[in-house]
Amino acid sequence: MDPATVGGGGGEPEAAAEWRARAVGGMEYGWYRAVPGGTGTTLLALRLVRGAEAAVAAAAVQAALRAILDAHPVLRARLRGSASGSPTLAFPSAAAPPPPPLALELLPVPESAPDFPSLLEHELNRNPWTAAAATATASEHEPDAPPVLFATLYELPPPAGGGSALFVRIHTAACDRAASASLVRELLAQLSGDGAAAAAGSEPEDAAVRASLEERIPQRDSWKPFWARGLDMVGYSINGLRTSTLPFEVTGTERSTQMLRLGFDRDETTRLLDACKQNGVKLCAAMAAATLLAARQSKLQLASNQQETYSIATLINCRKFLEPALDDHNVGFYHSAITNTHAIHGGEELWELAKRCQDSYTNAKNNKKHLTDIADLNFLITKGSYISTE
C-alpha cells in the first residue's frame, strides 16, 4: 500500500460506517480479472512547478484530491472479491461521518527513478491490487479490500527540474479513459483555485454507484435473437483462435511496463491530417492500418506475401447511448469495444488498408455491435477465449 493512500479515506470513521454494495457489471468484472495481471490501471500524472513550500504544496494537493473524491463517490469505492467468485463494488454510506483529512506526504524520489519520465514508469509498475487478488476473501461487511484509488506525491530534485510530481492510480473498473481526462481537468481546476466555487453548491454524481454500464443500455439496443448471439460467439471464438500474436520472449526477469513515445511536430501532424482528409479516412483508421502493417513487417521469418490474421479492438465511449445519457463528468467504466479481424500479407498500401479498417468499423458500429455484442465479448474475455488489446 502507498504511504499516501487516499482511496476511501481509510480512517476509523469510514471503516465503522455502513457500506452499500452492488454486483460488478460485465465490463467491470473483466477489469477485475485483468488488473492483478498488470493491465488496466489508469494513471494520472501531473508535474507541478515549484511555487510554494513543500508543506503548502502537499496541503493544496490533498484538498484538491478530497474535492475530487467528494464529487465522485465511485472513487471512494472498494472492489471486494469473495470465495464464491462474485466481486462487488462497495461504497461508504452517504450518511457516513466525514472521512479524516488525507495523509498525503511529499516523498523523495526513489534512486531508480530520479526524474519525471522514470517516475511515470515506476508508478505504472506498482500494482496494489495484485496482492489483494491472491487473498480475495474479504467479508461483505468488512471494508478491508483495497480502494480503487491511490495517490503519491514526490518532490523532484533540482537536477530533474524541481517542483513536485503527483501520480493518481485508479482501478480501470472505476474509471475509463474519458473519465480520466475529465478528472485531470477537474484536478487542474482545483489546484488553480477555479474549481472550488463550482464544486461548492454541486451535488456528487453517483452514476457508477447506482448501476453498471450493462444495466444502462436500452433494451432495444442490446437485444438480439438467441441463435444470432450463439453464431456471434462462435465467430468471435474462431477469430480469436485464428488471430496471430506478436512473439513474447521469456527472459526469466520480472515483467514490467515501459513507455514508448512517438512525437510529431506541427508540420508532420498537419501533413498527416491532410492525407487522412484526402483519402477519406479518419485518423484512427490510419493508425490502425499502420499498426497492422508494422505487426506484419515485424515477422521477418515469414515468407513474402504469407498471410496472417490480426484483430483490432476499438474502444467506444458509450455514455451518449445510455439511458439516461451520461457525459464524461460521470466517472466509471462506460466503454465498449468493436472488434474487426483483417488478413494481412504485408503488401498492402497504407491508405487502402486504412479504408478497409474504417469501413469494417463503421459497418459494425452502424449495426450497434458495440451494444448488442457486449455480453458476448465479456463472456469470452473472462473465459480467456478471446484476447483484445487497447
Rank of each mutant, 00 (worst) to 15 (best):
L273A: 12
F333Q: 13
T341E: 05
A174E: 02
L191D: 05
E140R: 12
W19F: 01
D265G: 11
V281T: 09
L300R: 06
A375H: 13
S388I: 15
A58P: 12
R177W: 13
E155L: 11
G9A: 09
P99R: 14
G10Q: 15
N125A: 00
F167L: 02
G8I: 06
Y236P: 00
R271C: 03
N317F: 08
T253D: 14
A145I: 04
L283S: 10
H370L: 09
L380Y: 07
A337D: 03
L272C: 07
R229W: 11
L322V: 01
E352Y: 07
Y334S: 01
E249G: 07
K299W: 04
A90Q: 06
L241P: 00
A94N: 07
D327R: 10
L246S: 13
Q306D: 10
K299S: 00
A67N: 09
L149T: 14
G195D: 07
N127E: 02
R185D: 04
H329T: 11
Y154P: 00
A96T: 09
G230E: 13
A4T: 12
V35E: 04
R210C: 03
S139R: 15
D327I: 03
L213H: 12
I316M: 08
T291K: 02
S93T: 05
S298A: 12
M259T: 14
A325N: 09
R229I: 10
I68C: 11
F116T: 07
T137Y: 11
T135V: 15
L119F: 01
N363F: 07
P3D: 08
A313C: 06
G163L: 08
Q190E: 14
S192N: 13
A15V: 06
T269A: 09
T130K: 11
Y236R: 12
E121F: 02
Y310P: 00
H171M: 05
P117T: 02
S298I: 06
L322R: 03
T251V: 05
P158Y: 10
Y310M: 04
A17S: 15
L262W: 14
V281P: 04
A52N: 02
A343H: 11
D232W: 15
R185Y: 03
K224A: 15
R169N: 06
I374M: 11
S256F: 15
R261S: 13
L293I: 07
P143R: 11
N127S: 05
I238G: 01
C318N: 12
T42C: 08
P98F: 08
P247I: 03
M287K: 04
A181F: 15
N239W: 12
L260C: 08
G162Q: 02
G230A: 13
D176T: 05
L69Y: 07
T41Y: 05
W227S: 11
